[in-house]
Structure formats: C-alpha cells, structure tokens
Nucleic acid binder design. Structure first.
Lengths: 117, 117
DNA sequence: TTATGAACAGACTGTTCATCG
DNA sequence: CGATGAACAGTCTGTTCATAA
C-alpha cells in the first residue's frame, strides 16, 4: 500500500462507473472527465485514460469490442463492456478503491488540521 | 502540477511544523510521525523523512547543525533550524502546500461521491 | 479533427544496504 | 540499538510521437 491513492486506481474507478453507465469508449470518457474536472483544475491526461482501460482489460474486468460510431461517420471506436465475471470483480475493486480513497481523505484531513497556523 | 499532493511535499510540510515546535532531529520526527500515523495505517518511510529534510535545506528554508544529544550519550545528531529568511519562505511554502491539500481533498471527495453505488 | 496507442524520459518512492557510536 | 544517508530498483506519470479514418 502506497501513500495516497494513485491516479491510475482513481481513474480506473471512474472507468468502471462510466462503463456501467454505458459511456463506452475512451475518447468520450476523456472528454467527459475533462469537462467534469475542469473546475477543480485537474485535467486527466489522455495516456492515463487509455492505460486505465488497458489495465481493466488485463484485470479481466472489461473486454474490448470494435464498433463503428453510431452516427454516420466511418470512424471506428473501441467500446468496453464487462466480461462474464466483470461486474463482480468490478464491485470488489470499487470497494477496495473507495476504502483507499477514504484512507487518503483521512490523511489529507489530518495534514490540514495539523499544519494550519 | 501533478494529480494529488506528493508524499514529499506532505512530509516537508510536517517537517516545517515540527521544526517550528522545536522537535529538532530526523529520527525523533520519524518516530513521532510513526506513532502519530499508526492509527491511519500510514508509516512514513525513513528515507522520505531524510529526503524531505535535505530538500528543505536545498530550498534554503532550514540549515543543519550537529549537536551532541542532550542526555549523557555521545551520539551526535543533526538538528534543523530556520535560516535567516527561512520562516518567510516556509510560510509561503506552507500556504502553497495547504492549497494543494485542499485541491486533493476536493478531488477525493468528488471521487467518493461520483463512484459510490 | 476524432480516436487510439506506444515510447520516452523523468519524478517519486519503498526496500535495502552502509556507516558510525 | 539509535541515527543518518545513499543506492538501487521499480512504479507512476506527463509529454511527445505515431498512426489512422
């Protein structure tokens, strides 16, 4: 266990939630998260989004499927779906990451308390 | 600016606060922080404590001074004190790190909110 | 431009090793 | 053991580059 939660785990959690909500492919998720985090001054890097998705495939939680985009364009897109036991695995992973988030929250809260004048 | 605050900055902030409180040398601070964080499941690594102190010296905030330990032992110890403009620099640094802590806090809070079932 | 991915370099960090009294 | 420090190895991450429709 490291210090605070890693960006990778943080984003993987979001990826799982987004796949649940059927926001299926990388670039879309990237744009959505960028918009979503703009006000907090955090811009998730493109590479981390893709790495997170690749990780989740390696973890056996998601699988990839090529699709043509819904609208009339020819562009192909990689959609992600839960594997057979993906949902269960994902819910375990989520639980674990939320715990890690709460641990991180406690550490940050303590530091603010201990070090404010 | 990275993602969440780095352990190094986090510990440097504690080092500054501990030097203010005249808890002067590395090993002591290490032991104090270990005790202090035990309940949160975080054990600051020895190397990071020393690296943080060395960083603060490089930053021109602290300086080192060898001392014999107060009690009757012969062991030498490195005490840290604020340099001439160390206090000002430290208060700037503190302000900056607290901001970063608050940014981190917001990111973590958002993730818990967005990804809880 | 949208979309995906990999390469690269550098920062960060945990463990281990070394040294000294 | 108390105390300090450095080396090493591995991970994490941001930027850049490559590719394609």
């Amino acid at each position: 266990m490291g210090f605070l939660i890693a960006q990778r785990a943080y984003l993987k959690l979001y990826m799982i939630t987004l796949v649940e909500k059927h926001r299926g492919y990388g670039y879309q998720m990237l744009e959505e998260l960028k918009r979503d985090f703009k006000e907090l001054g955090y811009e998730p890097p493109q590479s981390e989004i893709y790495r997170s998705l690749h990780d989740l495939v390696e973890d056996g939680i998601l699988y990839r499927a090529r699709h043509r985009k819904d609208d009339a364009e020819y562009q192909e897109v990689i959609m992600y779906y839960f594997t057979d036991h993906g949902m269960e695995k994902a819910s375990l992973y989520r639980k674990q990451v939320i715990e890690d988030l709460e641990r991180s929250q406690a550490l940050i809260h303590k530091a603010i308390k201990d070090n404010s004048i």
